[in-house]
Simulated assay, not measured.
Amino acid sequence: MNDDQLLRYSRHILLDELGIEGQKRLIEAHALVVGAGGLGSPVVLYLAAAGVGRITVCDGDRVDLTNLQRQIAHDTAAIGQNKAESAAASARRINPEVMVEAVPRRVAAGDLERLVAAADVVVDASDNFATRHAVNRACVAAAKPLVSGAAVRFDGQVAVFDARRESSPCYHCLFPEGGQPDEMRCAENGVFAPLVGIIGTVQAAEALKLLADLGTPLSGRLLLLNALDMSWRTIRVPRDPACSVCSRTLSPPVTRSAATRP
């Protein structure tokens, strides 16, 4: 690292658990963020600030006035711009040393598989089950760790699914495809502005821990937040040996198209 990097990341380097070697791992790492809305905004900004050397952010939506109450990567001047491009520009302003690539479209199956395979960690900041399942399938196929988050109204959740570990569940183990209740989205149900910031920041922390090989990730655990009384709960999530996505005894599933609408 050069002198400017030593100064920029000095507060990380002071941490015995992270230090220079851990910061080097972050600088050399590549993170894929699917979604640049409420969750993706703090994820992209914190990964950039922390020095993750390459960040790819995907989103096909455009910034709307209703987004600005919570999607902190965008400002009023960004209304009408693509969210991935707006978030990438914000990240570059925070840390011009990092390479931030915007993918300003909804990623289809082959595109998603390529992007996941090229990354060291994947952060799912989307807002719908179809995208979450598509991202999960791609992560299992490529054996990439996935940091998943969701937030609506006053409730949020975060989990890590690490396909590199034999005992780790995947997203499908927790939420079987087709078995979920009706989706609750911010546009219909509302969302407490700081909630997406809290959940997105936890996702960023988990991604950084995975990249720097630091601490104990949330693999096999679902972290739940009720922001009304600021209570946290942790639920153990076992791997489903009969899971149609991650079971080692079944043939790989066919990956379908994915659309992101964070």
Rank of each mutant, 00 (worst) to 15 (best):
E113H: 10
R165F: 00
A150N: 03
D64E: 15
L224Q: 13
T255W: 00
L174K: 03
Q180E: 14
D16S: 15
M99S: 13
I235D: 03
L115H: 14
A207S: 06
S148C: 10
E85L: 09
R25Y: 05
E21I: 04
P96C: 09
T56F: 05
A207R: 07
L174Q: 06
E21C: 02
T201R: 01
L250K: 14
D4A: 15
L225P: 12
A102I: 08
F129E: 00
C186K: 02
A163L: 01
A212H: 07
A77V: 10
P96Y: 09
G215F: 10
G178A: 06
T201H: 01
A89G: 12
R185Y: 00
G156L: 03
G60Q: 06
R236N: 10
G197S: 13
T249L: 08
L211E: 07
M99D: 15
H172I: 00
V44C: 09
R153E: 14
D75Y: 12
A117W: 05
C170V: 07
A204M: 03
D64C: 11
S251C: 01
L214C: 12
R70C: 08
T260K: 00
Q180S: 02
V34S: 06
K83R: 14
N2K: 14
D229A: 04
D4R: 15
S41D: 10
A204P: 05
G215S: 04
S244C: 12
A88K: 09
D120A: 10
P145D: 02
S251D: 14
G60A: 07
R92Q: 15
A48Q: 11
D240S: 13
P104M: 04
L6I: 10
V116S: 08
A150C: 11
E188G: 00
E21H: 14
S244Y: 00
D127S: 07
P96Q: 12
W232N: 09
F175L: 06
L18R: 03
Q81F: 04
G179K: 09
R132I: 01
C139A: 01
E177T: 00
V44M: 01
L174D: 02
R54C: 06
K209R: 14
Y9I: 08
P96V: 05
I13P: 11
D124V: 03
C58G: 01
E28G: 13
